[in-house]
């Protein structure tokens, strides 16, 4: 069961603005998502090995420099930016 508070916390952490009218619908969606994960968890997998399901190995890249992104593009999704840095204002967890 997903509570209203949990949903609002999640929205805050995800930096999503959601309106009150959306909350009930989103609560339903979240329930469905979690149920889906429960369904997968309940599947009987026997002795199947999931460690490397694609059975691929040694997919490598050559050590050749490619252009990086522009600073503006890198910072675009961040609301608090200063002098080219990401800025974290509320940093209770940052020493």
């Amino acid at each position: 069961m997903v509570t209203r508070e949990e949903l609002l916390d999640l929205a805050l952490l995800s930096k999503l603005d959601i309106s009150d009218s959306d909350i009930d619908k989103l609560l339903g969606d979240m329930e469905e998502i979690i149920k889906f994960a429960d369904t997968i968890n309940a599947a009987s997998t026997g002795d199947a090995e999931f460690d490397n399901i694609n059975d691929l190995q040694n997919v490598y890249r050559e050590d050749i420099v490619k252009d990086s992104f522009l600073q503006d593009d890198i910072l675009r999704n961040c609301k608090t930016v200063e002098n080219g840095f990401f800025r974290v204002d509320n940093h209770n967890h940052v020493e």
Binding site: Y60, R61, F69
Partner: peptide, 30 residues
Amino acid sequence: GCTTEFGGEPNTHCCPICIGLPGTMPKLNY
């Protein structure tokens, strides 16, 4: 493929992979 050069203006040696945007795929440098 971003450069490892020391220094540089902040956040100029970056791409969606090394800033960890969802949906990007890392590929190991041999």
